[in-house]
């Protein structure tokens, strides 16, 4: 992993990936010793097969695969940028994660963070992230594809390449509603039989949509809309710029 070469500051591994994947590669980034590549959905299968089969890449294991919902990425609930004569804003603005009920929408009044370095909000909502491992070269790689359609996100299934994708894809389908084309058995896996909705989407309320109780008259368990809890989050979501960490690392260097 420390095979850094001089040309454009990229490691030999990154250059190898660029050479092998060529046009299939949308972006490649290296940070903290981790390599992330992004491919288009139409190249998802071909790129995966190449990563597994190429003798110099040889990612024989799919360690993890998960969905990510980028809705509200970089939004916060507490304005820390505009100072007025009375100080910072005091209230929580918007209805972010955990602060709304079933049927209500996620809203953000602050909009995207406008810190010193603005966080680029991804253009597409759903992404699938896979973590690959090569035992032969002792290397990890993060592979990402963003689903083209925000309403009906879908991606080809990797089950044919790595069998371990089976349950991971079922989980991503269950929690995010991402359909994997070609999956032999795309059922829900973690949620209840007959569950409605995709609970890990950012616009799914934290308190859930239904609750269960035993009905003594009907003599069975019944499902009802949630009434027993109110949406409530104690600590507002706050984004601050990172000068604090620059200061902290400077202090550490000064031996403080």
């Amino acid at each position: 992993m420390s095979e850094t070469t001089a040309s454009n500051g990229r490691s030999a591994f990154a250059q190898k990936l660029e050479a092998r994947l060529g046009q299939k590669l949308v972006s490649l980034s290296e940070s903290r010793g981790e390599t992330t590549i992004e491919v288009l959905p139409e190249n998802w299968l071909a790129a995966s097969a190449l990563l597994r089969d190429d003798a110099e890449l040889h990612f024989e294991q799919l360690m993890d695969l998960c969905g990510v919902d980028y809705l509200s990425y970089g939004d916060d609930e507490w304005d820390t940028r505009d100072v007025t004569s009375t100080g910072f804003s005091r209230g929580v603005e918007g209805r972010m994660v955990g602060r709304f009920k079933w049927g209500e929408a996620i809203t953000s009044e602050n909009g995207s963070a406008k810190g010193i370095e603005p966080v680029p909000s991804p253009s597409r909502r759903f992404a699938v992230v896979a973590h690959l491992l090569s035992l032969k070269y002792n290397r990890r790689l993060r592979l990402r594809a963003r689903c083209a359609d925000d309403e009906l996100p879908s991606l080809p299934s990797l089950v044919g390449i790595w069998p371990s994708a089976d349950w991971f894809e079922r989980e991503a389908f269950d929690l995010y509603g991402i359909a994997f084309e070609g999956h032999p058995d795309l059922r829900r896996i973690l949620t209840d039989y007959g569950f409605v909705g995709h609970p890990f989407r950012k616009d799914f309320p934290l308190i859930g949509n239904v609750e269960v109780r035993y009905d003594p008259e009907k003599q069975r368990v019944v499902y009802e809309p949630v009434t027993s809890v109110e949406p409530r989050v104690l600590v507002p979501r706050t984004i601050r710029d990172d000068s604090r960490y620059e200061q902290a690392s400077a202090e550490r260097k000064a031996g403080k």
Partner: peptide, 14 residues
């Protein structure tokens, strides 16, 4: 393993 995505907030994004 833990896959952690942060958008700069005081809570994990994913």
């Amino acid at each position: 393993g833990i896959y952690l995505v942060s958008d700069g907030a005081n809570k994990p994004f994913r």
